[in-house]
């Protein structure tokens, strides 16, 4: 693991030195340079070029979701270790003075911080399900939604490709089992084509989410046995441990049940989503083609509009 950790550190140091990422003093939390963002915009443009003709409904959510929505999603059952909740000061003047005194003494100032109604979004698609559910029974062709937001997962790492705050660009399909599976199959082909057009090496494999604890082990093996999740992996800092840059997920009726989303026939909806980790893809591009995108292959710059 030290070899891998060294590779992570070396690439992060390169990115910071080149100014593509900006240190914020916390592992996994970075500013992005203008050049980095141009590449991210290019990745989004390439995604849109393929996905827009499907006519998705565009929804843009802030990087937070309601605490109740988080509870309802079931995420706390499977991945409590990744969740971030927003806290705020709720004391009075006396508490405020006590807090400032503790800060002066470099003590723990968080005692008066209480949870708010806001949690950080663990995935871009979590805003979609309650929004569609609130509309009542879906039309015959279900729903297709385009989302893009910052997500938070509490997993500090020196691997620049494992950020705590990162963006996911997703299409989310809600409908019958057949519709959800057809959507995922289509995007597994499209995902290969898009990443291939970026001239990146990749492979697509069955995967599982990093569920928590012993019950998580059961969830993870079940997820694999049912091939609910596939990942498109690109080697960034390691050939042996390539990085998941795109995921293709079929949730069966997990979210349909959680939010009581119904198809036109009155059945519980099945859902699927494709998620592009835009920072990870950008990091793969910088790794494989160099830190200056003006020197990237012409075909890649054309696809990215750079």
């Amino acid at each position: 693991m030290t070899v891998l950790a060294d590779a992570h550190r070396a690439y992060r140091d390169d990115l910071l030195r080149e100014g593509l990422l900006i240190s914020m003093g916390v592992d996994g939390l970075y500013g992005r340079s203008g050049a980095f963002e141009q590449v991210v915009e290019g990745i989004n443009a390439a995604f849109s070029a393929v996905g827009d003709p499907d006519g998705p409904e565009v929804m843009r959510f802030p990087p937070g979701i309601g605490k109740l929505q988080l509870e309802q999603s079931g995420y706390l059952k499977s991945s409590p270790q990744l969740v971030g909740t927003v806290h705020s000061f709720t004391g009075n003047d006396r508490d405020h003075r006590a807090m400032l005194e503790r800060i002066d003494k470099h003590g723990d100032w968080t005692a008066e911080q209480k949870t708010t109604e806001v949690a950080l979004a663990p995935a871009a698609c979590y805003g979609v399900y309650p929004a569609i559910a609130a509309r009542g029974r879906m039309a015959q062709d279900g729903a297709l939604v385009d989302v893009y937001t910052y997500c938070f997962r509490h997993e500090p790492s020196i691997d620049p490709a494992r950020m705590q705050m990162f963006r996911q660009r997703e299409h989310v399909r809600l409908g019958s089992e057949t519709q959800a599976l057809a959507f995922r199959k289509l995007w597994m082909e499209r995902g290969r084509a898009i990443i291939g057009s970026f001239a990146l090496p990749f492979e697509v494999e069955v995967a599982n989410d990093p569920f928590f604890g012993r019950t998580g082990k059961l969830l993870a093996t079940s997820q694999r046995e049912e091939t609910l999740k596939f990942e498109l992996l690109v080697p960034i800092t390691s050939k042996e441990h390539p990085t998941a840059c795109v995921s293709f997920n079929y949730h069966r009726d997990l979210f349909g049940r959680a939010w009581k989303i119904e198809t036109d026939a009155g059945e519980t909806a099945h859902t699927a989503c494709v998620g592009f980790g835009v920072e990870r893809i950008a990091l793969a591009l910088f790794k494989h083609h160099g830190f200056a995108f003006k020197a990237w292959p012409r075909s890649v710059r054309d696809v990215l509009g750079l």
Partner: peptide
Amino acid sequence: TSHATVNLMLALEEAFDIEF
């Protein structure tokens, strides 16, 4: 469901005093 399977697993462990 998968989440129900988790609940079932925990219930079995408690009832039979075992760990899978």
